[in-house]
């Protein structure tokens, strides 16, 4: 069975090729490439990825314009029907702006763009994206963002924690994120948004391969299903 993934490209996306490459290397199948202006997604998708970058030049707010682009209506419908959706970096910003994930990503508390490898703690190893990790495992992934400061009100944060929807946490404070949250899951668990870049850490040549298990988990969960 081949793995049918789609990578969405918005004007200003710049991690779409890395994402497509990672999906192909881990799954063995090249993902379909979808342009933001497409009103429909390819049929029978197993996985949708929203890549990093600066969609629409970060106009208005990071991810705000992309979240209202034609393809996102189809992504929202696909997510509602259970298709796994991964948003990385700008993709995470798009998911919050589209209302698929709670909260918002604000300017880093330290004002500066942060671009380096960071230590993360896996908080939930039960989701389809994180089943390949152990709960409490420390992994290293690169981050590269200006607006990664996760914000949500306390009631929302308590709910996320209580429902096991914090997927990853920064091991140390990085960007002002509430409770050091680096990645969150949707209520139904099939949408994951995260600021760190798993697609930039899938083989030794990248300097680390801790991101590989995320793609492998998602692929495995679909083959089993």
């Amino acid at each position: 069975m081949s793995f049918r993934a789609a990578v969405i490209t918005f004007p200003g996306s710049n991690c779409d090729r890395d994402m497509a490459d990672a999906l192909e290397k881990v799954s063995g199948s090249a993902p379909l490439r979808v342009w933001h202006g497409d009103a429909e997604l390819p049929e029978r998708l197993d996985f949708i990825a929203l890549p990093g970058g600066f969609s629409y030049g970060d106009y208005l707010r990071s991810g705000a314009m992309a979240a209202r682009s034609p393809v996102m209506r189809a992504v929202i419908a696909a997510a509602a029907s259970g298709v796994p959706v991964l948003g990385v970096c700008n993709g995470f910003q798009v998911l919050t702006e589209a209302g698929l994930l709670p909260g918002a990503l604000m300017r880093n508390a330290g004002i500066r763009f942060v671009c380096r490898d960071v230590a993360l703690v896996v908080e939930n190893s039960q989701s389809l994206f994180t089943a390949g990790y152990e709960k409490g495992q420390r992994i290293a992934l690169p981050v590269a963002h200006h607006d990664g400061n996760y914000f949500a009100d306390d009631a929302t944060l308590d709910r996320l924690e209580g429902e096991g929807r914090v997927a990853f946490r920064y091991a140390e404070a990085l960007n002002g994120s509430a409770r050091n949250i680096a990645g969150v899951l949707s209520e139904s668990g099939n949408v994951l948004g995260m600021m760190p870049h798993p697609e930039r850490a899938i083989e030794a040549a990248h300097g680390g391969s801790d991101g590989r298990a995320l793609f492998a988990s998602a692929i495995k969960s679909l083959v089993k299903a």
């Binding site: 208005l60 707010r61 705000a64 209202r68 709670p102 909260g103 949500a152």
Partner: peptide, 9 residues
Amino acid sequence: KQLLANMVI
């Protein structure tokens, strides 16, 4: 509500 402001923040 739908675009100009992000009601979360």
